[in-house]
Design a protein around this nucleic acid. Sequence first.
DNA 1: CTAGGGTTAG
Length: 566
Amino acid sequence: MSITPIFHIRHLKLESFLWNLIIRATLHNHNLSPHSPISVYLRMRRHCVTPDFHTFPFLLPSFHDPTHLPLGQRTHAQILLFGLHADPFVRTSLLNMYSSCGDLASAQRVFDHSLSKDLPAWNSVVNAYAKAGLVDAARKLFDEMPERNVISWSCLINGYVACGRNREALDLFRDMQSPGKNRAAFVRPNEFTLSAVLSACGRLGALEQGEWVHAYVDKYSVEIDVVLGTSLVDMYAKCGSLERAKRVFNALGGKKDVKAYSAMICCLAMHGLTEECFQLFSEMTTVNNINPNSVTFVGVLGACVHGGLIDEGRSYFAMMIERFGITPSIHHYGCMVDLYGRAGLVEEAESLIASMPMEPDELIWGSLLSGSRMLGDVKTCEAALKRLIELDPMNSGAYVLLSNVYAKTGRWIEVKRIRQEMEVKGIKKVPGCSSVELDGVIYEFVVGDESQEESEGIYAMLDEVMQRLREEAGYVSDTKEVLRDLDEEGKAKALSYHSEKLAIAFCLMKTRPGTPVRIIKNLRICGDCHLVMKMISKLYGREIVVRDCNRFHHFKDGSCSCRDYW
DNA sequence: CTAGGGTTAG
């Protein structure tokens, strides 16, 4: 870019005006080239042009990650030097700079020392706390705000979604729409709000609420841009409705970018549709010439894992590095380790781990553990667990996986030892929890839970169902994964109240025959529940979709889309 | 209209 003509303009005010414009024009230059905002600013100073009220709101957004903090601080000093620190625009920019550089304390200080705190300033500080993961603090500020607009609500909803408090995000969205609660005029959600809400719906599996958002989008003619479209795709796919995900995805037409493609690719992978996943990948890269990124490959490699496709996994891994120049992250290594482990290629897994440029983390050892668990490779599991608990001593999942392997192979002394070890260290097993949505209400079931209002009915229903499975389908409990050394009857009992069984009983009770059932589970589904779901799908003529923490299972006519490989 | 606040895939 040539900026020479500017130097000949004499008029002082006009000079800063033009320098400001140049800084704005360079905002997208993130490297420290001569054309970066800070370089232009320094040149402006060398030409003895005094910065004004507009200069810093242009300059400050160029400092947006922790490595930029020192420059941000020096810019703050410049602001003080030129006496521009009282200006509300400058202050909000400064607040945002500190927040995006990760210096929350300084952001708060800038806010506290502001004489007039207008709406953008409040929104910025709420957002700063929400982005830092301190959503309760954000909420406190939000509650103190003298007035709020759609941005205030969106920032806080985002904060809840970002830290996994999805229910609270939806509660807040509901409050936003009940005029009594937001003590202001009705605030209409926009595409920013709706994207965040859809994200929460997807994670919760709240299809009906997600559908409501989609209907809202249509009703108020909110434009489905690529961001909102991606959110819709993600929501439908995570709620088990691939058909509608595809419909929205296709309707995006030429607007689809790498994120939209990646969302769809990851979703196809989660549903075990490996072929379609690969096809979409090639459509994206070869037909539409969109470069995949690291997330795209997390999806594609995930599809390989779910399909047990070693060769494809290897070739995508190589393609990622060689053709697209993407440095594999720990997630990609994790996929490969999982893939090798499941195939019994323990040596390959280990040599890959040894070749990693970064220290293997708990994800890697977890992948090795969950991979080798499939084949009952006790030795590898033990080794992986040992490394895993060095890094993450309270990881209950690791202990459970290993004791699973011991239980499968009947090594009850070891099972007992693990259980004692967990007890001594105070490690609590994460309880299995399943949820279903009915008429827009999410019902949660925890293993052996009897607190539900209708517990009695649910248990009676479950007993009846299991009885029918035994009599009419020859069901015998698959007790291989019970973690206690009980007699066969005891084991069957320990299994029979797994949360997903409670959930399915509830659905059979509450919904009309033939209605599809969707269940979300926080852990991996166990062998026995998997078997029971298959049988129910046939005997009761129900389509059942179970999303466990790892992937989707579509049960229909007695079989599952995962082909019993998970 | 030279200026400040928020969104999607993992």
